[in-house]
Design a protein around this nucleic acid. Structure first.
Lengths: 133, 133
DNA sequence: GGAAGTACGCACAAAAAGGTAAGTATGCCG
DNA sequence: CGGCATACTTACCTTTTTGTGCGTACTTCC
């Protein structure tokens, strides 16, 4: 019988497989499409908003701002805004952010290096396999 | 003037920062919400569909099937379907899948272990900081 | 003096992700 | 003999995500 979780009995010290695991939002922030790229971009040091936008190909201003804010909210990114004439803001990784970024960079490097050995998702037609009666 | 990329001049050996980098789809498959969890779940060995569904909390059948298919398309997961009376299918990681899964697991472990040191995203009101005239 | 650059917030719209329910074929359990 | 379990797919609908302009306040460059 699939009786639902009686309570928050799963959140011992973070079972990512549990629906209510508090680590999930953090993982999502880090592994989000732009989160990954922004973390990696910031590994090269402090960047301004527009510099990041130029560096991370394809990101819109809205997504960049939003993702930076989420990362900041989790303590992975630092934001320093100078209320100067033309707005200026500097983003950089916190020590924790650097650790996280190192992990995603490792994965990203692996993907890039392994790419030729990965299928270009040929999308096989849904035939049944292994016919043994 | 923001002249668009003249051509495929960016895809040298995989600049993830480039919009058209072929690594991006793979990264998205791996770092997708369910991709991460499924890869980690499969680290424990071969699983059947329903076993995975039970293990990965919160995943729907649709998402599970879809994500498995994407991972399979990229050569990270193997699917073996036995055309037996009640359907039976076994999913497992390919060698490449195990490498990928190891990376995501490393990140996930880091997150779980670091969680107490990460802000619970207090979402600060958008005030300006560092007032220096 | 008009255009561009800066770092966004906001409103609107399109696209993508995700959930739900139902259907399938059939052996097994009660 | 009816219901459950299995592994999905498909259709339909809701939710979330993402992109596109627009506006801002002021300065510098042509």
């Amino acid at each position: 019988m699939p009786m639902p979780d009686s309570l928050t009995d799963h959140l011992r010290r973070g079972d990512l497989m549990a629906v209510n695991c508090p680590s999930r939002p953090v993982m999502r922030a880090i592994t989000s499409q732009w989160g990954v790229l922004i973390l990696m971009a910031l590994r090269d040091g402090t960047h301004r908003f527009s510099a990041l936008r130029r560096k991370v190909g394809g990101v819109s201003e809205r997504m960049l701002a939003e993702t930076l804010r989420r990362l900041e909210g989790h303590g992975l990114v630092t934001r320093v805004a100078y209320p100067v004439v033309p707005p200026q803001t500097e983003y950089s990784l916190t020590p924790l952010g650097q650790e996280a970024a190192a992990h995603v960079a490792a994965l990203a490097d692996w993907v890039e290096v392994t790419l030729p050995r990965l299928q270009p998702q040929p999308q096989p037609q849904p035939q049944s396999a292994e016919l043994r009666e």
